[in-house]
Amino acid sequence: MPEKEIGWDEKGCIEQLQKGNKDALAPLVEFYRKRAYNIALGFVRNPEDALEMSQLAFIKVYRSIRHFDGQRAFFPWFYQILRNTCFNFLQKKKKLKEESLEEADSSGSESLFTISRTPEEDFRIGEQRRLLAEAIQQLKPKEREILLMQHFHQMSYSEIAESLGIPIGTVMSRLYQARSALREYLERHYPSGLKHVM
């Protein structure tokens, strides 16, 4: 979870929003927009669509904020809205593809990551990162989601559990499955084992 900025009052913003003050949405958007974009990207895999979905999720927050229980944490609630928005989008996209008899899922082949290396790092490191990115994209959707939540969105176990509506034990076992799958993938492509990676 990112550090809260000085002067940032999430609870106050939510209370104002619940009273119908539209301007209170701006600081909430400012604080969560990058996380929202990154989460959406994990689902839709395309920067333009991820921007669109994250913006749509904020609009849905504004529309349904009066149903939000102010005693609970905001972010897991927001995560569910964003996730549902992305699923809905993907479902419609899939339906459109089926209707147009298009078989290839172009979004599925797009990379989630930018692979870069500094001039000091050798080519091998760039290759390892590319392989790891590939391995993450090969994970099952549930495993990839939980791995992204923990590694890239810096969510705690309790936040993940609340966002997905699962017990913390399930969070840990899914993470174990995801990391084990990554490990197997990397070991298959690096026969000498992970000891030589990085």
Binding site: L41, P47, A50, L112, T114, R129
Partner: peptide
């Protein structure tokens, strides 16, 4: 090691 490796990956940004 895998967790360390992922810290070097960056999600694509707009």
């Amino acid at each position: 090691r895998i967790k360390e490796m992922t810290s070097f990956l960056r999600l694509r940004q707009p």
